[in-house]
Amino acid sequence: MNSKLTQKIAFSFLFLCALITIAPVLLIVVIIVVNGISAISWDFLTTSPTNGMRSGGIFPAIVGTFYLAAGATVISLPLGVMGGIYLSEYSKDNFFTRILKLGIVNLAGVPSIVYGLFGLSLFVIYLKLGASLVSGCLTLAIMALPAIITATDAALSSVPQSFREVSLSLGATKWQTIRHAVLPHALPGIITGTVLSNARITGETAPILFTVAAFYLPHLPGSVLDQVMALPYHLYVISTQIPGISKSTTYGTALVLIAFTLSLNLFGIIIRTHLRRQKKW
């Protein structure tokens, strides 16, 4: 077989593989958009569900998911970034650190239902926070932490060692060095990791199942100790528990959830691009 033909076959095969990977994702999006777009209206986005959730809007679920995403980020971002800084810059490379890092990486692979049950036993029952916004945010934050810590650690490690040496050699302290010579250059990586991680947890159902999500709650939460509706759980409920609901409502809800996650990602990409443009590296 001549080499040109081999090359063509290899190219076609790789292209096919790429196509097969993307196709299901595209298909899902297309199906959801086609079936759900008719349900999307101003009323759908801004009113509460009515008629046993068969009609009306999904406003409380949107707000609930927004609160959960924001709350989880507020808790997990500082904790995760500081943990990552400790691991990357301060911890000595010994047995304990390696076990710790291995543990964190493995935590990222723990099934979400386990986080849900953990949140239920620790926050809801033991700390007596009940099924509430704060329990849900804490559970989601814990679930987001491993990815944020790992991303921070990786982003810091990718900053050249020479930046640290230069800064220290000019008489800066270790903390000044991290704060001014390392962290700014790791920020795009940290933000990407955080946003990706939080976009993922926004779509999770299992962690909020026992900790915060309300089956039907047609008003907005008054305090952090209230339950809220959330898009993923609402979607689960209307597609399995409500007989006779119109297809477009279910698909419409899914569409809103996807759009929500996507816009979170987009937000992250915009911040990252902006930071990268500032970076004269």
Binding site: V166, S169, L170, A172, H180
Partner: peptide, 21 residues
């Protein structure tokens, strides 16, 4: 250092880095 190691910031900021610290 042996290799020039400017920080990836402006000329001005490179020089005032030490004094600022």
């Amino acid at each position: 250092f042996a290799l020039p190691l400017p920080l990836p910031i402006s000329i001005f900021e490179n020089i005032v880095y030490g004094p600022r610290m």
